[in-house]
Structure formats: C-alpha cells, structure tokens
Amino acid sequence: MSELLIPFEYDYMVKAMWVSGLVGATCAFLSAYLMLKGWSLMGDALAHSIVPGVAGAYLLAIPFAAGAFVAGFLAAIGMWFVRQQSKLREDAVIGIVFTSFFAAGLLLVSINPTAVNVQSIVLGNILGISDEDVVQVVLIAVVSLAVLTLKWKDLMAVFFDETHARTVGLNPTALKVLFFTLLSACTVAALQTVGACLVIAMVVTPGATAYLLTDRFGRLLALSVAIGAATSVLGAYVSYFLDGATGGVIVVLQTLLFLAAFVFAPKHGLLASRRQTASEAITGGSA
C-alpha cells in the first residue's frame, strides 16, 4: 500500500502531477471548441510550428516561451493568410505551413546541436521542469482557464452561428483572435509537459470523448475538462511506476477513455446505436 504513495514523497513528482493536471484541463477546454469546428489539427500544426521558435530562443538566449509564442502566432497568421489568398483547402494550408515551420526548427537544431535537446521538445520533460518554467506554465494555464470560464458562452455563440453572434452585438473576429491567442499560449505550456507530438492528443481527445457523452455544450466542456485534468494527474502518477515518458502515459489514458466512450456511451456509443438499429428493425418488421 505504502508503495502507491511513494510518488507523493518526491517534490518533483507532486509538481509534475498538479502542473500536468492544470495544463490538461486547459487544453481539454480548448479541445471542445476545436473539435466542433473541424480545426482539431490546428493544435498539432501550432505545436510543430513552435519548434523553430524554441530553437531560436535558445540561440538568442531569450525565454523559451517568448520564442515559442511568436513562432506559433506567426504560423497561425500564415495559415490564415494563405487560406484567404488562395483556393487551397484548410488541410493543405495547415500541412504546408506547419511542415515548413517544423523543418526550419529541425534545421536550426541540427546546425546548432548542443543548443537544444530535441527530445525534450518532442516528448516534453515535465519531470525535469524548472521552477521558472512552472511559473510560466501555471500563469498561462490559469489566465486561459479564467478567460475561458468567463467567455465560454460568447465563444460558443460565435462557433455555432457567427452571423447570429453579430446580431446580438458580439464581435466574432475579436473573439476568434482571443481564442487563437489562448490556443497558441496553451500549446506552449503543453509543449513543456507532454511535448510537441502529444499536444495534438491533448487538444483533441478529451473534447471528442465528451462529445460522445452529452448533447449539451456546457456539460461537454465540464466533462472534457474533467477528463483532461484527471488523465493528466493520473498519467503523471502512473509514469513514475512505468518509468515511461509522462506525455505518452497521459495520452494512452485519454485514448483508453475515448475507446470506452466510443463503445459504451449511453446514446452515441457503438453498443447504443446497435441496440437502436436492432429495435428499429423489430418495430419496422412488425409494422
């Protein structure tokens, strides 16, 4: 029994658990919106686009997060600009922009190999996170969560029906800029906990899981945040025993929850729709 409590005896483990939980909750909040708009790959794209910013920041000896945020923001603007000026579809635009940014990042790192540990960008390093980084991550997460909690209904109105949102006096453009700023910031935060590759899972899976469980957006947000936070804390905790990468464990847990919802969800799950088809076949047959 006492073996299960061992992780709590180490400061770095306790820190990893609550910081991961906070980041997981924020990413999950954003995932609910991204998933509904078909923008899920945005998170992935931003996470990869951040790499050259991080590498550049190390080279110039400026804060990690500043470089990451600038690169992420430039990528988002780049995607928006190419989308506006060409008839290319969203996936092609996102693909082009993020691969070029990612490649530039890898090039920077390969030219200056000692500057950054690529693995810590790709996989994150929550167990070795420094105190300044903790402050940074916590600040981003807390501010984002606060803004989202205050503005979730306005964002829902904009994501659901932009035209209507305008007629009730909202400013859709400003709200979308706000949303993508938060997304860029949270991607930077998540990068340090789970790494670039797994940010995508953090900003997709919790929202997708919650979507299968409810038909109301408010509940979807609550469920999504709960899933994100719980899997992140648990993932960090379990990773101590597995001696594996924290990010990997978190995402595996999220995937398991998704699969469970996919099969067992009361209304939208596989079993439920099987039952429904079966009962329709019976009533159809008797009619």
Partner: peptide, 13 residues
C-alpha cells in the same frame, strides 16, 4: 451539441 432550448436562449444573449 446544443438542445433546442439552448439555441433559443442564444437569442437572449
């Protein structure tokens, strides 16, 4: 994921 009443409530925003 919105219910009928949620949509109508958005009219009140």
């Amino acid at each position: 994921p919105v219910l009928v009443e949620d949509v109508v409530m958005m009219g009140r925003y």
